[in-house]
Design a binder for these strands. Structure first.
Lengths: 187, 187
DNA sequence: GTTTCATCTTGTCATTGACAAGTTTTAGTC
DNA sequence: GACTAAAACTTGTCAATGACAAGATGAAAC
């Protein structure tokens, strides 16, 4: 703390600054130098920890997959609960989520990312497979949760749903599991 | 053609170059100057037609909403067909689609964009409303199509589905409309 | 043929990402 | 406690970029 040279926790600080910047202006609306300024270090300091911009986003993506895995683990085994947890994760960790599904921004073949991604995938496989061996159904569940999250993130949802996306998601996602009749045609 | 000064159709040329560049490297992986070089004009020529980078992406988004409206119109009234058409649009016009749902990249309040967006929304409302007055069901349909498209675009889908996403989408989207039992639990 | 205006060019500037080379602190070893 | 090696951070630099200003060119209208 007394030292003006060693920050002490620069890696974590820069990652957090990146999260804040991405939440404000999207995954490309910031610069490494801006993060360095926010952290109070020189313009080249972040490069020491992440190499380059893609390296920083690689670290963010890996962290994101781990956070998602944790959130899904906590959600239990029910598919609907998992979907709601997925949407909640996207809303609460919007920066991580947006980067994770934009592989052109980072090194998707990085060992840390693939490992974390595999952990998340295994988790989903187990949860979904327990309820049904139907891979189409699993993809349908992933799609509807991912789609609702994406629409919410891009501000495309009606304003009344935008406030609490996780709560708003439940009745929508539930359409995949029940109440089919009112979807197909009028009574 | 003989004139070295007036390009003749620079606006269209730059837009097409942007589409190509975005398909190659994502919505942020290119520069205005690169597009100018591809079009064989000076580095400042594109600015005359679009103002700045956001202006170009604004034009792309507006065009995208019109293309989507046209694709959905052609798809008919069946909700499942509409969903498949939505996914096909995302795959065939990936650059437009990716920009459209990233409002931080362009001026979402631009009159041309809002007008085109409203046209698309009205179209969807009419088609969905005809089948059912249930707005939750409409959102569920939009979500599952949007989510499948997004997952395909980010390369998250299993390789066997990646080849022809529109065809692959149909059985997935159909899960929203029928065959509920095998989703909820094993027989 | 002249006026007018859209189109395109040249020139410039601050900002940025990346890299090279040097400085300071920490950690480990004797 | 001094010595050494490595990690953490700084300063300096360069080409590329987006944005803007000012000027040149050609097309269209009359």
């Amino acid at each position: 703390m007394s030292s003006s040279y060693h920050h002490g926790d620069l890696r974590r600080t820069v990652l957090s600054a990146a999260v804040a910047a991405i939440e404000e202006s999207g995954p490309s609306g910031w610069s490494l130098r801006e993060l360095a300024r926010r952290a109070g270090v020189s313009h080249a300091a972040p490069a020491h920890h992440f190499g380059d911009k893609a390296g920083l986003l690689t670290a963010l993506a890996a962290e994101g997959f781990d956070l998602l895995a944790a959130a899904l683990t906590e959600a239990g085994d029910d598919l609907l609960d998992l979907g709601v947890a997925y949407v909640r994760f996207a809303a609460e960790h919007r920066a991580h989520f947006e980067v994770m599904f934009r592989p052109e921004l980072y090194r998707a073949d990085d060992p840390e990312v693939t490992a974390a991604g595999d952990r998340t995938a295994a988790l989903l496989d187990r949860a979904v497979g327990a309820g049904s061996p139907d891979s189409d159904a699993a993809l349908a569940a992933w799609s509807i949760a991912h789609g609702f999250a994406g629409l919410w993130l891009s501000g495309a949802l009606p304003p009344n749903l935008a406030e609490d996306p996780a709560t708003a998601a439940r009745p929508i996602l539930a359409k995949l599991f029940s109440d089919r009749e009112d979807v197909r045609s009028a009574p």
